[in-house]
Design a protein around this nucleic acid. Structure first.
Lengths: 224, 224, 224, 224
DNA sequence: TATGAATGAGTCTTCATTCAT
DNA sequence: AATGAATGAAGACTCATTCAT
């Protein structure tokens, strides 16, 4: 279970947390157990196929307790999503050097995203499974949309300063995003087997190649 | 319902048919109604969220009739998948000129795939929804895997004759596949709004750019 | 299928036959096929577990045709019961010599019953299976009750003329009946494996022994 | 419902329990309610004709609760059978004096069986109804077969020491068994109306008469 | 007569959620 | 906080029966 560390401390962060007013240390521990258990099961079999009973059994508590900590099954899911989305945003922000040129920033974002996907594997596996379930689509998409918007902005900057190819920035940004998502998925599922850092580097190269206006620019960014 | 035409004639002759051995013209019509109805609903809300009752209601028939034409819900799904997978393979094969150079063939495949995804929108929407449901994963993945394998082969040829960049062919092929899948998805969901032919052209260009060893080659293939 | 012959000609006998006004020769044939098919299946798995579909399939006709010949499933069952009950009554009447002494007549009835049970095996197997289904109990019981009443009468005669042991005639008659039924059942199911004539003789002896007032009478009746 | 006491305490401790591992006192009570309810309904209309809904309604609980205590309908049935079979065996063993002569032991077994059948009326009624349902045949038959085997052994002993008539022991034992079963059935259904002790005595006499080698032996055993 | 498609009430079972303790 | 029993709304599937041809 490599995700354990990543999922930790999901609980206290923000107002998204449901359940009772304020939890004791023990309570937080319990709630975290349930979240971890759920994340693992959602990843394995998806939201719909995971019973509340499975979640509590894996967490080693009684069924009724679930409803002490969460409004219902969907609320737990929501908490999970919100938390991990924040983690991803944070990782991306940390990796993208505000002083670097657009293309480099994009590459940094791409690599940070892949690294995060790898360490939060359970969560992203879950997203994949539930991908477009009507009820969750909005919730899930919103997160990546923010990053797409960032990317569009950077692409426009790059086009303006002549480092990025003149194409529809929107389309290009979606392409970048998709490449990251798919390669991340393949890595997670074992379809692609290589250290995540190597894969991240490859995807970074791939993206730069697609966007850079010529090989010279591309090489410069890749050497950075 | 833009898919109507595409889905038609799904039912014709072989053992895939569950209920009775050989259907009359009327029977085929009925079965088709059910398949269309199911495809639409699966696309809208996913397999699990679609009740057999919904399917028959939409088709305007009684519940019991469903089980005259199909063993069960899963069997219908299976028929849907098998049919559309075949349609896609056929479209790809028809579009890829056996005498063309590797990079061009890849581009042709990409464009054919997008066109097919567009005309079989219901079906591909459904795949998206059910993406990795444990029970269907194999069924669904197998189809695209075949095409990935083709693409890998073509990439290797291209590397050999110096037209494609030297990288892991496997990784590149997955990237090509992903780009097609994602852009198709965005088009289907309205996230990208442009004529499918234009989008296909864009994706073709995108792919060629990623793969081509240099701009000269890329331009040649894009002019073809 | 050793019963084929025995079941034949079930159809024309009396007014119990449902379906259409008058059947042609072909029609009778068809109806008989359905009755045979049903009798066999009822015997194998019981009334409730036998689908109308099974019956028509075994008879090699279409489902709808069933309802041309029979009001419904229960009506067919009723016909089956009525017919075989008559056959049994006839066999018993034929075997019981009106001039013989009571104990001998009882013995003759016992042996005739066992022989008939053997040749109508399907039917009696069915009775066993459905034994006391509320809906059919009356129907089924009535037949054997007639014979029990006969037996009671004979026992009373025997008691009167000093050949049969003084006990509750009712209880004795039920015992006789039961012995026949059970041994017949065991023979049919293979639990007891011996020629039916041998078994019939044994049961006859058994019954005579229970009823006869002393060994002398018993021996006389058994030598008859 | 004269069986209530007899059925009580069916649920106590072993793996037969489906739902939860170990039940609280209250849980046992509930489970027992369901078992009683089911036994009564099975007896009235048979297994197939009894809906799970009927069972829970009669027990005054919600449908879902059934599946908390039992895997499914069949599992409940199985528990019922196993329990009562054991009760019968125990009663027989308790009644048969190990030091008595064979014929007397047989008579004791017969009488104990009838008494038990009377106090477990619901259960035996149920057996009658479902008599030979393919799925349960083994389960049901096994129990009585054990007793038949015992009886065969005793008959052989009796033949050896000259107290029992020389006939096929197997046939005689089946006859004994059948007499008990049938008379029990008639008593249960009201066909024979007399105190069960009187009936048991009659059947004991009946059996001894069939088996005893002569009247002297019979009288001795009946006076015991 | 014969076919096989069509109907829909009825059945078992699952599982999220609630509740008494 | 914690338990586990209790609830009931669904949902998949069956099958006797009807009907158009």
């Amino acid at each position: 279970m490599p995700m354990a560390k990543a999922t930790r401390q999901l609980v206290d962060g923000d107002g998204a947390a449901a359940g009772p007013r304020r939890l004791t240390a023990q309570g937080l521990e319990r709630k975290q157990q349930l979240l971890d258990s759920a994340a693992a099961l959602f990843a394995e079999r998806g939201y719909a196929e995971t019973r509340v009973l499975d979640i509590v059994r894996r967490a080693g508590v009684a069924k009724g307790l679930f409803y002490w900590y969460f409004e219902n099954k969907e609320a737990l899911f929501r908490e999970l999503v919100v938390h991990h989305r924040q983690a991803l945003r944070k990782a991306q922000a940390a990796a993208m050097d505000p002083d670097a040129e657009p293309l480099l920033r994009i590459r940094q974002g791409v690599e940070a995203t892949l690294a995060t996907m790898s360490s939060h594997a359970h969560f992203f596996a879950m997203l994949q499974v539930e991908n477009l379930d009507q009820r969750f689509a909005d919730l899930l998409v919103r997160g990546s949309e923010i990053h797409v918007a960032d990317t569009i902005r950077l692409i426009k900057e790059g086009i303006a300063d002549g480092t990025i190819r003149e194409e529809e920035p929107e389309l290009l940004a979606l392409g970048v995003n998709s490449a990251v998502a798919y390669y991340g998925h393949f890595h997670r599922t074992g379809r692609v087997q290589m250290p995540i850092t190597d894969l991240a580097e490859f995807v970074g190269r791939y993206v730069v190649r697609v966007l850079a206006v010529d090989d010279e620019i591309a090489d410069r960014v890749l050497r950075a």
